[in-house]
Design a protein around this nucleic acid. Sequence first.
DNA 1: CAAAATAGGGATATTTGTTATCCTTAATAG
DNA 2: CTATTAAGGATAACAAATATCCCTATTTTG
Lengths: 162, 162
Amino acid sequence: MILKSQVEWALHCCAILAGLPEGRYLSTKALAEFHGLPKEYLSKALQSLSQAGLVHTTLGPSGGYRLAKAPAELTFLDIVEAVEGKARTFVCTNIRANNPCRAPGYCESTPCAVARIMWEADEAWREKLRNVRLSDLIEILSKEIPADLMKRTFGWVLERAG
Amino acid sequence: MILKSQVEWALHCCAILAGLPEGRYLSTKALAEFHGLPKEYLSKALQSLSQAGLVHTTLGPSGGYRLAKAPAELTFLDIVEAVEGKARTFVCTNIRANNPCRAPGYCESTPCAVARIMWEADEAWREKLRNVRLSDLIEILSKEIPADLMKRTFGWVLERAG
DNA sequence: CAAAATAGGGATATTTGTTATCCTTAATAG
DNA sequence: CTATTAAGGATAACAAATATCCCTATTTTG
Ligand code: SF4
Ligand code: SF4
């Protein structure tokens, strides 16, 4: 069970978009080139972000993506769920229904303990992601990434931002 | 990203094995019949449990599986990792290495903040599973499952346990 | 207005992972 | 010896992730 690579891509793209000046947009082409990713496929991830309302888009030359909210209002969970979906990672196929000892008509009303425990763990994962904001990431990165690389990257993006 | 159905199977099988009297074994055939699962494929899940040292096996007629430890010494994480693997659910493909602004030889020593945050969430999921013991599950089930069904199930298993 | 660039989305191929079956081997109980 | 079992290799069927291609509507730029 491994998350799609689109999750990684989306997180990185959001980090870049967070550094974009107010009112400017960055295209799929630029984001793909910057990360060395296939443009057409990265586009699908960005469309997921768009459908989830996390980013805003414009068409035409100088078009592209910008964040729809402030980085402090965007959580990791928002981004992860946008591309990975909101479905729980443990699916119950109700195999207890096959127990040959059960009365024929007998039907459990509630999900059994196995499923509930697995879902709690799933929720713990989500809760952790919910408590990290995009702004938290930016803060960490700004401390860890060398100043000159940060500056060059910022310049690279601005040259291409419409 | 969805866990394999083998995870559900393994958890259910362990729950059944936990009710097995000391020194007796239950075969793949019985476990598959009880849960309505394909015997050959369930066998792969049980082999995973065996390789992880969670269950003990014997060969021959009256052979099969029993738990290798007391239910209080077996956690959900043990079982989940036995079939699903211990690898983290977020894999980092190091796309930051493609940043065209980086100096050619520049190489990050540590995983970036994105990966660390995702791995923390993964660890929170595992921590939750680590804190639930198989004995906890049995306790909950014994309260929730009707006494007569419990009794019939127990009898069904004993009839087939070698 | 015309041309170029863009996001959106449908269709489709490729690759990988999951699910499932089959068969052989070695061990064990009766 | 015979029947039964776990272990594991080989392989097929199926589903999901990854990737590419192409068409459309929209918008900026010239
Ligand atoms: S996890 Fe629980 S609810 Fe889901 S199939 Fe198993 S017994 Fe049923
Ligand atoms: S998550 Fe971090 S370490 Fe992993 S590829 Fe992205 S930037 Fe690199």
